[in-house]
Design a protein around this nucleic acid. Structure first.
Lengths: 124, 124
DNA sequence: CAAGTGTACTAAGTCACATAGTACACTTAG
DNA sequence: CTAAGTGTACTATGTGACTTAGTACACTTG
């Protein structure tokens, strides 16, 4: 399970959303798995249930999870939701590349940074 | 001169800061050049002078510009400030790469995105 | 001297975010 | 059936960042 950084300035509900999206991308949770209940996760994170509820609502609106009254929330198998996440990731990355280019970083350096980060992965 | 996007959610003062940093990186302004006055820039952007003043204070604290009472603000030639900007850019880009990797994007795709964006530049 | 400059300060308004508390409908285990 | 646990909805409140508004002062330059 991911952790929250209350000092980061990133809204808590967004951190929860991104945390579960990452978990799904990494295979730590899969379609059909039951999500922690709103109240239990709020307790675990020492956060208000309303904040978790908001995060779950965002995840559901994005098709990442679905919720059933009285039963709980579950990881969705919506393929279009997954590709939407990837599209968003590509878009964000493109913006990051453009920003780096505007500040004078060269393509070679950017490629090197990428390779360095992905080499870290191979070590595992 | 750059433009402001009031709908972006990015604080106006930050947009002004980033705008001038980009302008310096692109060579549109150089060390010694005089910055627009706080009041005139506020008028141009239809923004409160306090907001521009805040942006200039941030730029000065970062060594990007320096200000002289009664005369105006000027672009600094502080080399360490420039390298600090580059360091920040590298750090931001690394974070973007890590985020993209966590969401399942491969290094080959990221490299391709970079090359595509930098090819756009060559056309000019 | 007058105009333009940076700088500082208080006050107010707006907005997003988080918290607090309550309430209701539903499902499931007992 | 009952109780516990679930998602969901709602109002109210507090906080902090951001912006605006207005005023004021010290300084430089023509």
């Amino acid at each position: 399970m991911f952790v929250l950084d209350l000092k980061s300035g990133v809204p808590i509900c967004d951190q929860i959303v991104n945390g579960f999206i990452k978990m799904k991308a990494l295979g730590l949770i899969s379609a059909g798995d039951q999500m922690p209940s709103v109240r239990s996760l709020a307790l675990k994170f020492s956060v208000n249930p309303n904040t978790v509820q908001k995060a779950y609502a965002i995840l559901e609106s994005g098709g990442i999870i679905y919720s059933v009254k009285g039963r709980g929330s579950f990881v969705s198998d919506d393929e279009s939701a997954h590709s939407a996440v990837l599209d968003r990731a590509r878009s964000d990355f493109k913006a990051a590349v453009s920003a780096a280019r505007d500040l004078g970083l060269g393509s070679l350096e950017l490629n090197k940074i990428i390779n360095d980060i992905y080499k870290e992965e191979e070590k595992c």
